[in-house]
Write a protein that binds this DNA or RNA. Structure first.
Lengths: 254, 254
DNA sequence: ATACACCTTTACGTTACGTCAAGGTCAATA
DNA sequence: TATTGACCTTGACGTAACGTAAAGGTGTAT
């Protein structure tokens, strides 16, 4: 029994284009080609196509399928196990996505409040995730794994009151810093108050405080455009001003 | 505060190419362009980009994001709910995929046997699913929803013994049909025995047997190349021969 | 003889960018 | 002041797995 592209296509439930494509990339070549250039497939090709479609249904890429079906020595089981790992990762990511979408829907519908305890928990987790994604690499490099892990752990253990306190402190810092910036003196009273507030704020996130780390972070505010953007939002030069104030506050300016 | 592509890119954690692409497709245009042709973004663009990236993280396509961010009247909540539905479907599909991959791994490793009861259940579900995908539409059109549902339900309730019996019958049909085909007479004893076996086999799958449906199915074996291919595998013309035999058997040949 | 269903190759479109290439701009430095 | 070197621009090709024409040859039934 010989099949033309359309016969084989309808047999397998795929398009003729797909069969030509499979021929083109060399994963399924016809048994022979007749005098008019028609592709003709035999039983062996039918079997092989079934194998291909089986792996395809599992979500395996055609590239990998090619290796599996062309090299009989290829370890199909190992490939499948690796493929399973990727599928599991994908599902985890999908679960996170779904949770996020549902939370967003709930918020836009006003079904849950910002002060809702559960929501707050999820929110914190999200903050940490985002933090990890944005700054994780640099911060880990600069301060080591342990500091980061402890910081994340501490943040997860924050009570809502502590979290509110952190938000309040952040606002206070912004206000004080703006006033201090107007004086132009990083060693002045206002600037030093801002540095102190910043320390208090930091202590809510960091497991242990050290002058060195505080000064290092201040320098990073200037070096890293993402932090600079945050502090310079209202007044350009604020990040640099805050760094100078912190350097004086920590005594690391000598 | 104005941002160039790189500044904004590092602020948001995306590439400059992405920003140019967003400009190109009109989802985020710069606030202004300076005399040298540089793109310059302002605070409004930063906010908008954050919104875009938020939806992007949720897996929303840029096309949909464009509608959401450009048309303020657009029902973002509805879009999100629809998007969630698609995500849930995707997860179901992913779960089936994972189960399939794991089963395949288990089989190739020889950890589970073909006779394993649990495996048999999954196998049956798979058979039905495949059946649905391949022939569901045509069969539903020809025999109606109810017949199909009943057939699937009956198949799910098959015991392993019944299933084995079905497999055995199918083999017997093939053998008898081949012998009958050699005689060339669809009204002969062998051909009528094949038709009877086919009826018995069919009764395992169909909730109710009727001559009309039996004859109709036989005709379909000839009309549909996928079925034809199955019966004509060894000897071309077998499907037609079986149809003739069944038409005579059911008395529908007048 | 002609209609019509089949077959072929070629080639562009899809998504959301990555990755050069060729060339202009800007600030700091020798 | 000339020259780096880091930035910016547009243009264009590549990705995965086909869908979808277009332009033209083949097979067969009426």
């Amino acid at each position: 029994m010989e099949y033309t592209v359309q016969k084989l296509g309808s047999l397998a439930g795929i398009s003729t284009r797909t069969l030509r494509y499979y021929d083109e990339i060399g994963i399924l070549k016809p048994a022979r080609i007749n005098s008019s250039g028609y592709r003709l497939y035999g039983q062996a090709e039918v079997d092989r196509l079934q194998q291909i479609l089986f792996y395809r249904e599992l979500g395996v890429s055609l590239e990998l399928i090619k290796e599996i079906v062309t090299a009989p020595s290829f370890d199909g089981a190992l490939a499948l196990r690796e493929h399973r790992e990727r599928l599991l990762e994908k599902r985890e990511q999908l679960d996170r996505l779904i949770a996020n979408v549902e939370k967003t829907i709930a918020v836009t519908e006003g079904r849950i409040k910002m002060s809702d305890k559960e929501k707050f928990e999820g929110f914190k987790k999200n903050l940490i995730e985002e933090n990890e994604k944005k700054y994780g690499k640099e911060i880990r490099e600069k301060y080591g794994e342990e500091t980061v892990e402890k910081s994340n752990a501490k943040m997860m253990n924050m009570t809502q009151e502590e979290y509110d306190r952190a938000t309040g402190l952040a606002n206070e810092i912004t206000k004080t810093l703006a006033e201090a910036f107007a004086t132009g003196n990083p060693a002045g009273e206002l600037a030093q108050k801002a540095a102190d507030l910043h320390k208090q704020w930091l202590c809510l996130y960091w497991a242990q405080y050290s002058k060195e780390a505080h000064a290092g972070l201040a320098q990073m505010y200037v070096d890293d455009p993402r932090f600079t953007a945050y502090y310079d939002k209202e007044q350009p030069g604020t990040a640099e001003f805050l760094r100078d104030a912190i350097l004086i506050y920590t005594g690391m300016n000598k």
